[in-house]
Deep mutational scan, measured.
Amino acid sequence: KCTICLSMLEDGEDVRRLPCMHLFHQLCVDQWLAMSKKCPICR
């Protein structure tokens, strides 16, 4: 589950894993990281 948009991560979707190993939709986390340089879970 992407904790930014709260939707399930589905096969075939573009996802991004951060160095902390948390996984998000690529678009969601890219937009998040443009505003904050910290993982939305770890922050």
Rank of each mutant, 00 (worst) to 15 (best):
L27D: 14
V29D: 04
L23E: 14
Q26P: 12
S36W: 12
C20T: 01
C39K: 05
V15L: 10
H22E: 01
K37R: 11
P40E: 05
C39M: 04
L23Q: 13
Q26M: 09
C20D: 02
L33A: 08
V15N: 04
M35H: 06
R16T: 12
D30Q: 10
W32L: 14
C5A: 00
I4V: 04
H22G: 00
C5E: 00
C42W: 01
P19Y: 06
L23S: 12
Q31I: 05
V29L: 12
P19T: 04
R16M: 10
L18D: 01
H25Q: 00
C2V: 00
Q31S: 12
M35P: 09
S36I: 06
C42R: 04
T3I: 11
D11S: 07
A34W: 04
P40V: 01
C39T: 05
T3Q: 15
C28D: 02
L6R: 13
C39Y: 02
I4W: 07
R16G: 14
I4M: 11
H25P: 04
R17Y: 07
F24T: 09
W32P: 09
M8F: 14
D14S: 12
M8N: 13
L18N: 00
D11G: 09
H25G: 01
L6E: 15
E13L: 03
L27V: 13
L9K: 02
S36A: 12
C20E: 01
K38F: 15
G12C: 07
E10Q: 10
L27C: 10
L9F: 15
M8Y: 12
K1F: 11
L33R: 07
H25Y: 00
W32C: 06
K37T: 09
K1N: 09
H22P: 01
L27N: 14
L6Q: 14
R43L: 15
D14T: 10
R43E: 15
D14A: 12
E10N: 12
H25N: 03
L6S: 15
M8T: 13
R16N: 07
S7H: 14
R17I: 02
Q31A: 10
R17N: 02
L18T: 03
H22D: 02
K37P: 04
M35R: 12
L6P: 02
M35W: 08
F24A: 13
F24C: 11
C2Q: 05
V15A: 11
L33Q: 10
C2A: 00
P40Q: 06
T3N: 12
V15C: 08
R16L: 08
P19A: 07
